[in-house]
């Protein structure tokens, strides 16, 4: 395990040096919250049963995950496109696990920095804490767990580069599904019932909507449901990642002749 953690630590050190990107993410976080606070002020979120203040905190919490997870697929597809993967595969540790743990390092650093941004911007815009402030403390570990599962699925997307060279189109769909079926901007409660049912069958609602709603409402049963679902999707993701990776490596061997 120590060798994997070393890759995470290297990624943290690398990410720490990349200050420009961190500042941009920080600013983007503030802008998104500002845009949506303007929107909710214009239409009034009371119509969907949520106080405007809680609505902004909801968005701050979902965005914390979305802005933190690293785009591992771009690193994987770059390795495959440039041929670097041939050298990386000869290491005595599986290539995909190296990428995954590097991603974890980047993720944890971003989550730590953006936690301050999210809290600061949301507090500044709303002028106070959410209805259940304790939920914020609870959300810290839950949000990190959810982000780790999202990062796992990001790694799986990258593995499709073995077949497609460029996995970006799959990432587009993944991010938009997170957006819509995950309830990133709008809580699933306001969706038509049939769309809510579809969303709850996908992993996306477990990534964003369920953990955020459970913590914001301090609902123990909903939190348990969120954690169980996240664990199930994590196990499915781990198995899928290993299977796709083994197939992808075989495909690369065939191409290499």
């Amino acid at each position: 395990m120590g060798k994997y953690l070393s890759f995470s630590i290297i990624a943290i050190k690398h990410g720490y040096k990349n200050k420009g990107e961190t500042i941009a993410r920080f600013a983007f976080y503030g802008i998104i919250l500002l845009v949506f606070s303007s929107l909710w002020n214009a239409v009034g979120s009371e119509k969907i049963g949520l106080k405007p203040r809680d609505m902004i905190w909801y968005l701050a919490m979902t965005e914390w995950i979305v802005l933190s997870y690293p785009l591992i697929h771009t690193a994987i597809q770059e390795d495959i496109r440039t041929g670097n993967v041939a050298y990386l595969l000869t290491r005595p540790i599986p290539y995909i696990w190296v990428k995954f743990f590097e991603g974890m390092g980047t993720l944890l650093l971003r989550m730590l920095i953006l936690a301050f941004a999210g809290f600061g911007f949301a507090y500044f815009i709303t002028g106070g804490l959410p209805t259940n402030p304790l939920g914020l403390l609870l959300y810290f570990p839950v949000g990190i767990f959810a982000s780790m599962v999202v990062t796992l699925y990001q790694s799986i997307i990258g593995l499709f580069s073995f077949w497609l060279q460029d996995a970006t189109p799959i990432y587009w769909i993944f991010s938009k599904c997170n957006f819509i079926l995950g309830g990133m901007m709008l809580p699933l409660d306001i969706y038509p019932e049939w769309l809510q049912k579809i969303a709850m069958l996908t992993p996306f609602s477990s990534f964003l909507y369920l953990p955020v709603k459970a913590c914001l409402e301090l609902d123990a049963s909903l939190l348990l449901e969120a954690l169980i679902k996240l664990t199930v999707w994590a196990v499915i993701g781990l198995i899928a990642m290993q299977l796709i990776y083994l197939r992808g490596v075989k495909k690369l061997n065939v191409n290499g002749g």
Binding site: P169, W172, L186
Partner: peptide, 21 residues
Amino acid sequence: TFMIINNLVFFTMWWVFFKKF
């Protein structure tokens, strides 16, 4: 093709929004 799907899926957020407002 995926970009077309991406854009149209993104727009469904507004479809959901305008169902309420």
